[in-house]
């Protein structure tokens, strides 16, 4: 007590400290808010451009009009598509009709964490392209997911649920038709399975996936 009493003027009161801390916090928040408003538009544009750019490779060979991102459909969870949570389908227009659908799904059984996949389908269920959007596979081992190092995903173009038949939609080690990479079968197995499940889902719900209006809310196709 004597120590406290001996220096009452040098130690600031709790209130003083609280006010200082509050003032600095307010100034810092203002700084963040200013930066946020200054960069918001640019960030939104960047994200839109990035999405558009990452969707494009999955739709090779199909002529389309307008933006790929303009007609999204959110399919609510639970659904039979790979991955938990809502799935997004971007419908691609040409001449007023939906000619293709781009599915963004998640393969949850990869080697390290989830693999986000972009799967492009023509309206008749033929694959127009498969791209890996995001993955954490070990470099060197899961390299087939890396577009710049492997054209492994190219083998799926033009394939569909009849070619090969659904029971052959697996990697060779599991008695299926698709190449795996020696020493790394977990990643390809996960990807092939995700594509198969997407094809089956599309086959079952084709009409509503192609025709449901884009409301922004999650829906459950019939």
């Amino acid at each position: 007590m004597t120590e406290l009493a001996s220096q009452p003027d040098t130690a600031p009161s709790v209130w003083q400290s609280a006010v200082t801390l509050m003032t600095v916090a307010a100034i810092c928040t203002a700084l963040v808010a200013m930066t946020y408003y200054g960069t918001r538009q640019q960030i939104a544009d960047n994200e839109q451009a990035w999405l558009e750019q990452s969707l494009k490779p999955a739709i090779s060979g199909v002529p389309y009009e307008g933006d790929l991102t303009s007609d999204p459909l959110v399919i609510s969870a639970p659904n039979e598509l790979p991955g938990a949570g809502d799935a997004v389908v971007y419908r691609v227009q040409s001449g007023g009709n939906v000619v293709a659908a781009l599915f963004v799904v998640t393969a949850t059984d990869g080697f390290v964490g989830p693999i986000r996949l972009l799967i492009g389908l023509q309206d008749d269920g033929t694959l127009t392209g498969v791209r890996i959007l995001e993955h954490k596979e070990t470099p060197g081992i899961g390299d087939l997911v890396d577009q710049s190092r492997s054209d492994w995903v190219e083998q799926f173009v033009e394939r569909s649920l009849g070619s090969p038949p659904v029971e052959l939609w697996a990697i060779q080690r599991d008695g299926g038709e698709f190449d795996q990479v020696t020493g790394a079968s977990i990643t390809p197995r996960a990807i092939v399975k995700a594509i198969r499940e997407t094809l089956v889902y599309f086959e079952a719900h084709r009409e509503s996936i192609l025709t449901l209006p884009s409301t922004g809310e999650a829906v459950t196709p019939e």
Binding site: A11, P12, Q16, T20, L21, C28, T29, T35, T39
Partner: peptide, 27 residues
């Protein structure tokens, strides 16, 4: 800045700056 509250003060300042830098990088 009283020495008793300097650490929370530094954390507030640094965290705000990092948030700004992150936004700038995103943009």
């Amino acid at each position: 800045i009283a020495s008793e509250i300097r650490i929370p003060m530094y954390v507030v300042i640094i965290a705000s700056l990092v948030t700004c830098i992150e936004l700038v990088f995103k943009a």
